[in-house]
């Protein structure tokens, strides 16, 4: 009995090793996230865009209108994971054909500040929060 338990454990270990051998996890992060707590210092109709930039860095985009502008701060996280089950063929074949399951998720988030011509902030709002960037291998 002990012999069979040992054999099974070894086989499972070898299988896990070959499965993990084809495993890749990637993460791409663009800028640091901005939280609502970080914006507590903003006083509408008083705080200027300069003060916001001092704390958060410069916006990624500024859209101009005749009497106002919108400054947009962006940050994102992307995660991608893949599992190449083809490595299992190495157990029985000298050639391993790729059979990869892969998932990718990208969260792009933003906060926008609406300012007047003098760069005084009149309002700000967060974009919808995404929840895609989880580590998952199953693409279906």
């Amino acid at each position: 009995m002990r012999f069979f338990v040992g054999i099974t454990t070894t086989l499972v270990g070898v299988l896990c090793f070959f499965v993990l051998e084809g495993c890749t996890v990637r993460r791409v992060a663009f800028n640091d996230p901005i939280t609502a707590q970080e914006l507590e210092f903003v006083r509408l109709d008083k705080t200027t865009l300069h003060e916001v930039v001092e704390r958060l860095g410069a916006p990624e985009d500024i859209v101009l209108d005749t009497d106002q502008l919108v400054a947009e701060f962006q940050w994102s996280t992307a995660r991608s994971a893949s599992l190449n089950l083809g490595y299992l063929f190495r157990l029985i074949s000298p050639v391993s054909l790729p059979f990869t399951l892969s998932g990718t998720g990208i969260n792009i988030e933003r906060v926008q500040f609406v300012c007047d011509k003098n760069l005084v902030v009149h309002s700000y709002f967060f974009g919808r929060t995404d929840q895609h960037a989880l580590i998952e291998f199953w693409p279906f």
């Binding site: 993990l20 051998e21 495993c23 890749t24 996890v25 990637r26 993460r27 791409v28 663009f30 990624e60």
Partner: peptide, 12 residues
Amino acid sequence: LALNLLTLNVKS
């Protein structure tokens, strides 16, 4: 040998 980990940190 058993796992590949990769990150890309971007700032502007």
